[in-house]
């Protein structure tokens, strides 16, 4: 795992977008894993700008999102399909048929999960998975105690998450109770992982995920097992990390990061 600390959220998102862009240029057929959430919005904004200004080409890439609520129509403004369309897909030249999210309206949800895993496998697995981190230290909807080898499946949302999302849905009773999410095992099979976290509210969980023990209580900590995982944080989200100086030294000295410094 590598940790890169950027001065602010703007710089952290920009670095994330540049890494995605570089991978996409090296392989236009990139299979890209995507995430939703406020942290990601800045990244999508930058990618859209790169598409417009530098002709960054998404026409051949395939995307797979981490998760989707059960029971929401794609047109529902709270669905992740809607989020992705609004923030990213409709602003770039990605072929809509190449964008994948779990279908939360499927009649047989179990079957939908298997189908989703099969689809990922069909394209040779995810080349680059972009991730955010939840307040409980989770990736996707893999909330505390999710098995570290779990696959795509239906998960019940925790009361904390329900409460957190209540304002968006206009009341806690309106929040979907369940979601389909890639499992921790699915996520860490990606060729490369990029985790982006910004803001002081993420400082504690980032410290736990990066420097704490690997535990299903903090599912992002499973990324410590990943051979090629980069964690990008701003100063605020890095506040509780112990080895900041070491991380900075690596970023300053590793040839891999030359073009990004």
């Amino acid at each position: 795992m590598e940790v890169i600390i950027q001065p602010n959220a703007e710089a952290a998102s920009s670095l994330t977008a540049r890494i995605v862009a570089r991978e996409l240029k090296a392989n236009p057929h990139l299979v890209l894993g995507l995430a939703t959430g406020t942290t990601m919005e800045r990244v999508y904004l930058k990618l859209v700008r790169m598409h417009r200004e530098e002709h960054l080409d998404f026409s051949l890439c395939r995307t797979f999102n981490l998760d989707e609520y059960v029971g929401l129509f794609p047109s529902d403004p709270n669905s992740y399909r809607h989020y992705m369309d609004e923030h990213f897909f409709r602003h770039v030249n990605v072929d809509p048929r190449n964008t994948h999210l779990p279908n939360g309206l499927a009649e047989d949800l179990e079957e939908e999960c298997t189908r989703y895993e099969d689809a990922i496998r069909r394209f040779g697995g995810i080349d680059l998975q972009v991730l955010g981190i939840g307040k409980a230290g989770h990736i996707g909807f893999n909330e505390p105690l999710s098995a570290l080898r779990s696959r795509t499946r239906v998960k019940a949302l925790t009361p904390t998450t329900l409460k957190q999302n209540a304002p968006l849905f206009g009341g806690e009773d309106k929040v979907p109770r369940r979601a389909i999410t890639m499992g921790v095992g699915t996520i860490i099979e990606a060729e490369r992982c990029l985790l982006l976290a910004t803001g002081s509210s993420k400082a504690e969980v980032i410290a736990l995920a990066v420097e704490g023990p690997i535990t299903s209580m903090v599912t992002a900590s499973a990324l410590q097992l990943h051979p090629r995982c980069t964690v990008i944080v701003d100063e605020e989200a890095a506040a509780s990390l112990k080895e900041k100086e070491y991380y900075r030294w690596i970023f300053e000295n590793e040839p891999e990061w030359q073009g990004y410094r």
């Binding site: 057929h29 299979v31 051949l60 048929r97 190449n98 069909r122 394209f123 040779g124």
Partner: peptide, 15 residues
């Protein structure tokens, strides 16, 4: 070549 093509289908709605 499955990595590079959408799989063939004659379902309605598919290209």
């Amino acid at each position: 070549m499955r990595r590079y093509v959408t799989s063939w289908s004659c379902e309605p709605g598919q290209s």
